[in-house]
């Protein structure tokens, strides 16, 4: 069993955020120290005013994108931010926001959902992730 896993959340599309949240909750459940580094569109999705807004589906689905969304609704898939909240509740999960993206988008930590623990530079994140696996989503 991995002792530490880090996820770089780069994408802000509904399907990738859902996959991120599901994998993070699996890692948290299995007792793995889990870190999420939010950058670019991944960070954007954590803005307070956007977090509960349905995000688009990734373009690679083409015209099937809306079908994917319909299926998620029909199957009662829990919203990604709720799944992440549960993961934080049951396990050791830290969510870090990328300082550079914050600067780029003129954001303060108070603009982000309270699930976000802190704002870090990428070097600090790499230091935290050292010795574990890193997954880029």
């Amino acid at each position: 069993m991995a002792e530490k896993m880090s996820f770089v959340a780069f994408s802000g599309t509904a399907d990738k955020l859902q996959a991120l949240a599901t994998m993070v909750s699996g890692a948290a459940a299995m007792g793995v120290e889990t870190h999420v580094f939010l950058t670019f569109w991944g960070l954007n999705a954590f803005r307070k005013e956007l977090i509960s807004t349905p995000m688009p589906i990734s373009p690679e689905y083409g015209t099937a994108g809306e079908q994917v969304r319909d299926l998620m609704v029909k199957k009662g898939v829990q919203p990604w931010y709720e799944v992440l909240g549960m993961a934080k509740d049951i396990g050791d999960v830290k969510i870090h926001a990328c300082a550079m993206t914050m600067d780029l988008m003129d954001l303060q930590q108070s603009d982000l959902d309270p699930m976000v623990d802190d704002v870090l530079g990428v070097g600090t994140f790499i230091g935290i992730a050292e010795g574990g696996s890193i997954l880029f989503i």
Binding site: T22, S25, G26, A29, K75, G76, V77, Q78, V83, M86, D89, I90
Partner: peptide, 13 residues
């Protein structure tokens, strides 16, 4: 009524 990973989370809670 809960989709993956809901039931596991319910068991843990």
């Amino acid at each position: 009524g809960s989709f993956c990973p809901g039931p596991l989370m319910e068991m843990i809670r």
